[in-house]
Each structure stands twice: as C-alpha cells, then as structure tokens.
C-alpha cells in the first residue's frame, strides 16, 4: 500500500471523526472545530489521491481545489464564529437552543 492511500485513509477517518464530533457535541465551538477537521479530511483525500500520477509532480488540479477549499473553510469558520458569539450574547449559552419556536 502506497502512502498515497495511507493519507487518503487518514483523510477518510478524519472526515468521520469530525462527523462524529459534530454529532456528539452540543457546544458550537466544538461543532465548528469538527467541521474544520472534516474539511481537512476531505482535502487530504483530494490531495493524497492526486499523487497517483506515477511521476514526480502530482496532479495540480486538486491542489488548486484544496486551496480554494481552505479559503472557503476559513471564511465559513469566521462567519460561524461570529454567529456563535452573537448567539451566545443573546442566549447566554454557546449551544443551539433546542426549541426556539413558540
């Protein structure tokens, strides 16, 4: 098994780990972390598999995609954190209120 697949598998596991954390945690900050870890997992899969060209240089297209993905991730994180902060300021609790409906 080449390291390519090793990293890809790590990516899969990271994705699942993040998903698991996203499920079990109620705290929003942790959820945001979990999403980031998931993202890292996906990126890892994308890039690891790009190395299968059989040459020295890997396929650059996934690399570009991942760079795009990272920027998207940081943007989303920033927005999510701000939302979380505002929500905490409103509710006094950094968790999703289970039932915000009347």
């Amino acid at each position: 098994m080449s390291t390519v697949f090793l990293y890809a598998l790590v990516g899969v596991v990271l994705f699942s780990l993040g998903l698991y954390a996203l499920i079990v945690h109620a705290h929003l900050l942790r959820k945001i972390l979990a999403i980031n870890v998931m993202g890292s997992g996906v990126f890892l899969v994308l890039v690891a598999l790009a190395k299968r060209t059989g040459e020295d240089t890997p396929d650059p297209v996934p690399h570009a995609m991942v760079i795009t993905g990272i920027v998207v991730a940081v943007s989303a994180t920033a927005l999510a954190l701000t939302l979380m902060l505002k929500l905490t300021a409103e509710t006094g609790n950094a968790e999703l209120p289970e039932d915000s409906r009347e």
Binding site: L19, I23, L96, E98, D99, R101
Partner: peptide, 18 residues
C-alpha cells in the same frame, strides 16, 4: 416528533444524514 427526538436534535439529525 417535534423537537426532542427527531427534529431539533442536531445530533440525531446528522446521524440520519450519515
């Protein structure tokens, strides 16, 4: 079905997603 078990439960929901 309302919030606790199915709809609101974020955790359960994602499990569903998976």
């Amino acid at each position: 079905g309302k919030p606790a078990v199915l709809v609101g439960g974020w955790s359960a929901a994602i499990t569903m997603f998976v």
